[in-house]
Write a protein that binds this DNA or RNA. Structure first.
Lengths: 183, 183
DNA sequence: TAGACTAGAGAACGTTCATTCTCAGCGCCA
DNA sequence: TGGCGCTGAGAATGAACGTTCTCTAGTCTA
């Protein structure tokens, strides 16, 4: 096993474990066991746990947004498709809310790299929604709905939160169209 | 110092510390130091840290909702006042997001009492909003906005998220009125 | 084939922290 | 006054865990 394969296996193990149980609850030994990579190699690839956490977040950000983007793009970049994607996500077996919000909660004073990764994710999602919705204000409103629905679905375990948010988004998008038409 | 005063001082210290730094980052010794209550007494009042955490959450829930309720009631129970209150909250010096969402993130598998306290808080807030807004669907939409704005304000540090959510709420409430009027 | 480097397995170290124990002091009741 | 029980201070315990170290064995090169 070369170093790049070890890195990938570590990141996959870390994502599974960190997302499922929380970062603090998972020891480096658990990552070693699940990845099949020795501790020595682990610390060669990631000199400290914080580095692994940061890499986990950056990787998850890419994959999460990629999945959303592909799904929505296949539906003609309809902003409402975002909420259909959310509903699928909420209903997945291991769904435990937003990894970035959870990490934010876990670390009172996060290491700088971790804090940056969390903010980066939210910034990127916001930028993506702004690209999807002409009016910037409305994009930000949808963003708040997305975050709220995610948090509530995680806590209540009810994927129907996506439908509630979708209904709200529909009204907000229609109101935007009207105000544009009136001008 | 009798036992009830010790309990109050412990809860106040716990709230300050747990909210500011996260539950896991605060040791029982820090609670002892801040409260001025001896470790022995601490463990008499709360046999384990989880009990203290649970009591902290239940107490914070009461106080948080009380503050919101009073503020909104003083403004004629206008649902939009909720977002004015949020904005004030977001701008407070020590604001670090929703204690319940943060705790949810901290504990991958929370102790039963803690999980129950988190769910209770969200259930109570939802019920409160439903009392404030006639249409149940719209109340739930506002709830998602509240949660989303809180999470984003915590991560970005921008209390303006409250305004974004308020604008969205205004549109949603107006749309509700229209649909009622049309009937 | 000898020697140098490397990897893996797992022991070891040092720290943190929840929880419990010890001990000395002090009020309270006979 | 003399013991009894409770208290606070803080040491002790035991576990978890991030990180490093040791040792053994294999592999590649000259």
């Amino acid at each position: 096993m070369d170093s790049t394969e070890a890195t990938v296996r570590l990141l996959e193990a870390a994502e599974d474990l960190f997302y499922a149980h929380g970062v603090q609850a998972v020891g480096m030994d658990a990552v070693r066991e699940r990845s099949g990579v020795s501790l020595k190699r682990l610390y060669q690839c990631f000199p400290a746990k914080n580095d692994l956490v940061e890499a986990y977040l950056l990787r998850r950000d890419e994959r999460w947004r990629g999945s959303l983007r592909d799904f929505v793009h296949a539906r003609g970049d309809d902003p409402l498709a975002v909420f259909a994607w959310l509903k699928d996500w909420f209903a997945e077996p291991g769904f435990r809310g937003c990894a970035f919000i959870n990490s934010f909660g876990e670390f009172g004073e996060p290491a700088p790299g971790i804090a940056a990764a969390i903010r980066k994710h939210k910034d990127e999602v916001r930028a993506y929604l702004r690209g999807l919705v002409p009016a910037e204000g409305v994009a930000d409103q949808l963003f708040a709905l997305v975050e709220g629905a995610t948090v509530l679905a995680a806590i209540t375990g009810d994927s129907g939160e996506a439908d509630t948010a979708r209904e709200a988004a529909k009204v907000l998008l229609a109101a935007q169209t009207e105000s544009v038409t009136q001008k």
